[in-house]
Protein backbone atom coordinates (compact mmCIF):
# COMPACT_ATOMS: atom_id res chain seq x y z
CA UNK A 1 0.00 0.00 0.00
CA UNK A 2 2.83 2.34 0.69
CA UNK A 3 4.22 1.75 -2.70
CA UNK A 4 0.91 2.16 -4.33
CA UNK A 5 0.45 5.39 -2.39
CA UNK A 6 3.61 6.71 -3.95
CA UNK A 7 2.52 5.58 -7.33
CA UNK A 8 -0.78 7.35 -6.84
CA UNK A 9 1.05 10.52 -5.92
CA UNK A 10 3.22 10.16 -8.97
CA UNK A 11 0.26 9.67 -11.25
CA UNK A 12 -1.52 12.68 -9.86
CA UNK A 13 1.61 14.79 -10.18
CA UNK A 14 2.07 13.78 -13.80
CA UNK A 15 -1.55 14.56 -14.51
CA UNK A 16 -1.15 17.95 -12.94
CA UNK A 17 1.90 18.62 -15.11
CA UNK A 18 0.00 17.64 -18.20
CA UNK A 19 -2.77 19.98 -17.20
CA UNK A 20 -0.41 22.90 -16.76
CA UNK A 21 1.05 22.31 -20.17
CA UNK A 22 -2.15 21.75 -22.06
CA UNK A 23 -4.64 24.32 -20.80
CA UNK A 24 -4.28 27.88 -21.90
CA UNK A 25 -6.75 29.29 -19.44
CA UNK A 26 -4.94 30.64 -16.43
CA UNK A 27 -7.57 29.42 -14.01
CA UNK A 28 -7.07 25.90 -15.25
CA UNK A 29 -3.33 26.24 -14.98
CA UNK A 30 -3.69 27.27 -11.37
CA UNK A 31 -5.99 24.37 -10.72
CA UNK A 32 -3.49 21.98 -12.21
CA UNK A 33 -0.82 23.45 -9.99
CA UNK A 34 -3.07 22.79 -7.00
CA UNK A 35 -3.35 19.21 -8.14
CA UNK A 36 0.43 18.97 -8.26
CA UNK A 37 0.75 20.42 -4.78
CA UNK A 38 -1.76 18.04 -3.48
CA UNK A 39 0.06 15.14 -5.03
CA UNK A 40 3.28 16.25 -3.37
CA UNK A 41 1.47 16.45 -0.05
CA UNK A 42 0.16 12.94 -0.58
CA UNK A 43 3.67 11.74 -1.10
CA UNK A 44 4.73 13.28 2.17
CA UNK A 45 1.87 11.71 4.09
CA UNK A 46 2.63 8.31 2.62
CA UNK A 47 6.25 8.68 3.61
CA UNK A 48 5.27 9.66 7.14
CA UNK A 49 2.95 6.67 7.35
CA UNK A 50 5.72 4.40 6.20
CA UNK A 51 7.87 5.33 9.16
CA UNK A 52 4.96 6.09 11.51
CA UNK A 53 6.34 9.52 12.17
CA UNK A 54 4.42 12.78 12.47
CA UNK A 55 6.87 14.55 10.17
CA UNK A 56 4.94 13.70 7.07
CA UNK A 57 1.81 15.35 8.33
CA UNK A 58 3.69 18.37 9.55
CA UNK A 59 5.15 18.92 6.14
CA UNK A 60 1.78 18.44 4.63
CA UNK A 61 0.61 21.22 6.93
CA UNK A 62 3.28 23.50 5.59
CA UNK A 63 2.37 22.63 2.06
CA UNK A 64 -1.20 23.46 2.85
CA UNK A 65 -0.42 26.89 4.21
CA UNK A 66 1.86 27.59 1.31
CA UNK A 67 -0.84 26.56 -1.13
CA UNK A 68 -3.28 28.91 0.57
CA UNK A 69 -0.93 31.85 0.31
CA UNK A 70 -0.11 31.03 -3.24
CA UNK A 71 -3.73 30.74 -4.26
CA UNK A 72 -4.61 34.09 -2.79
CA UNK A 73 -1.80 35.92 -4.49
CA UNK A 74 -2.29 33.97 -7.69
CA UNK A 75 -5.94 34.72 -7.95
CA UNK A 76 -5.32 38.37 -7.24
CA UNK A 77 -2.89 38.33 -10.14
CA UNK A 78 -5.43 36.59 -12.32
CA UNK A 79 -7.90 39.36 -11.59
CA UNK A 80 -5.29 41.93 -12.59
CA UNK A 81 -4.52 39.98 -15.72
CA UNK A 82 -8.17 39.80 -16.68
CA UNK A 83 -8.57 43.46 -16.00
CA UNK A 84 -5.81 44.28 -18.47
CA UNK A 85 -6.09 41.73 -21.22
CA UNK A 86 -9.84 41.07 -21.03
CA UNK A 87 -8.98 37.43 -21.66
CA UNK A 88 -7.69 34.63 -19.56
CA UNK A 89 -5.33 33.35 -22.23
CA UNK A 90 -1.88 32.70 -20.76
CA UNK A 91 -0.28 33.16 -24.16
CA UNK A 92 -1.67 36.66 -24.45
CA UNK A 93 0.93 38.00 -22.08
CA UNK A 94 3.63 37.72 -24.67
CA UNK A 95 5.37 40.95 -25.59
CA UNK A 96 8.26 39.33 -27.42
CA UNK A 97 8.74 40.05 -31.07
CA UNK A 98 10.32 37.75 -33.60
Amino acid sequence: MIRDGFILAGILFALGTAGVLVRRNIIFMLMSIEVMLNAAGLAFIVAGARWSQPDGQILFLFILSMAAAEVSVGLALVLRFYHQYKLLDADAANKMRG
Binding site: V20, L21, M29, D91, M96
Partner: peptide, 12 residues
Protein backbone atom coordinates in the same frame (compact mmCIF):
# COMPACT_ATOMS: atom_id res chain seq x y z
CA UNK B 1 8.82 32.33 -27.08
CA UNK B 2 7.46 34.38 -24.22
CA UNK B 3 4.70 31.85 -23.70
CA UNK B 4 4.40 30.63 -20.17
CA UNK B 5 3.26 27.14 -20.95
CA UNK B 6 6.23 26.66 -23.18
CA UNK B 7 8.53 27.48 -20.30
CA UNK B 8 6.58 25.18 -18.00
CA UNK B 9 6.97 22.46 -20.57
CA UNK B 10 10.67 23.14 -20.57
CA UNK B 11 10.85 22.73 -16.85
CA UNK B 12 8.86 19.51 -16.96
Amino acid sequence: TGRMRWYAAGIA
